[in-house]
Amino acid sequence: MVDFALLHRLALATAKSGSFGARTADGRIALTALPEGHVLQVLASPGHADIEQAVAKIGDGKPHAVRAYGPGQWFLVGDAPLSSSEIFAKASQLDGAGSVADQSHGRVRIEIAGTAVETVLAKGTAVDLALSQYPVGRSAMTLIGHISALITRTGPDSFELMVLRGFAESLWDELIEMSLEFGVDATAAN
């Protein structure tokens, strides 16, 4: 029995939406708030850093659902919300070799795409994002300016950024500013 109902508000519901910056037709940047489905953090138990295959099996099966960002550390992401029993079922599949923490409420995903996307992100991070060094599917935890973010390459000209919920709108505003020279179309959450 709960005393009051928790109201879920999308982190980027009131973020800036629309077209900003250069009025070019080609090479524009598209910024899109992604569905707040699920974000699960998986940590390998001591002595079990090599559980990649087991972790891959509990992802939702979509491309780039499983994102490694350090030894024995992964994020599982997806567009569909998961109940606590569904999360518990995933955790039990790891059979004690790893733990699963629900971060769905705490981290937000943003898609950024366009032919100039590497140039835009290079204004904020020192990670080498050239396709030859950073192929599709690669993830890295890094800083974009002062904001910690997980960068995942989802295509030759598209990336997904995952950021702590409270920083999502700040990062959103910064990404718009970083994209102004190319023109940017931003679509906030709805």
Binding site: Y69, G70, P71, Q73, A140, M141, T142, L143, S148
Partner: peptide, 8 residues
């Protein structure tokens, strides 16, 4: 400590 990376 790689605070803003792998946290190792």
């Amino acid at each position: 400590h790689h605070t803003s990376g792998c946290r190792r």
